[in-house]
C-alpha cells in the first residue's frame, strides 16, 4: 500500500516536472517562470522518497502541527501564482497596445495585410 502511494506521489511530481521541461523546450515557458513548476514538482518527488519530509520540515521551522507547515507552503505557491498572473496581465495589455499601434502604422504606410497573417492567434 505504501509503495502504491509512493508511486502515485512520484508520478505526480514527475508529471509536473515533465510538463515544465516540455514547455521549456517548446519555448512556451520562460526559464524564470519554470521555477514554479520545479518548486512544485520536486516536493512530490522528495515526499515519494522520504515519507517524513513534512514532519522534518515542521520540526525545522518549529511548527507544532505538520498541517500548518503544508498550509504555509501552499500560501507560498499561491503568492507565486498570483505574481505570475500579474506578469501575464501586464504583458497582455502591452501586446494589445502594440497590436493597436502596429495596425495604425500599417494603415499610415498603406500596408493592407497584418504581419504573420498565417499564424493569427486570438488573445481574447
Amino acid at each position: 500500500m505504501i509503495i502504491i502511494r509512493n508511486l502515485i506521489v512520484l508520478a505526480i511530481g514527475a508529471t509536473i516536472l515533465f510538463m515544465a521541461v516540455r514547455s521549456l523546450r517548446a519555448d512556451r515557458l520562460k526559464e524564470r517562470y519554470a521555477i514554479i513548476f520545479v518548486l512544485t514538482g520536486l516536493p512530490f518527488l522528495i515526499l515519494a522518497l522520504w515519507r517524513d519530509a513534512v514532519g522534518y520540515l515542521a520540526n525545522f521551522l518549529q511548527i507544532d502541527y505538520r498541517t500548518l507547515a503544508l498550509i504555509a507552503v501552499t500560501i507560498f505557491f499561491m503568492l507565486m501564482i498570483f505574481k505570475l498572473l500579474s506578469i501575464v496581465s501586464v504583458q497582455e495589455r502591452r501586446i494589445t497596445t502594440l497590436a493597436q499601434h502596429v495596425s495604425i502604422l500599417m494603415h499610415k504606410q498603406g500596408l493592407t495585410d497584418p504581419p504573420d497573417e498565417d499564424n493569427q492567434q486570438s488573445t481574447s
Binding site: 494589445t96 497590436a99 493597436q100 502596429v102 495596425s103 495604425i104 500599417m106 494603415h107 493592407t112 495585410d113 497584418p114 504581419p115 504573420d116 497573417e117 493569427q120 492567434q121 486570438s122 488573445t123 481574447s124
Partner: peptide
Amino acid sequence: TPILRLPFNLGIGG
C-alpha cells in the same frame, strides 16, 4: 474606406 487591420483578435475593448 480606411481599415485598421489588427494582427489578431483583441476583443471588442482592444
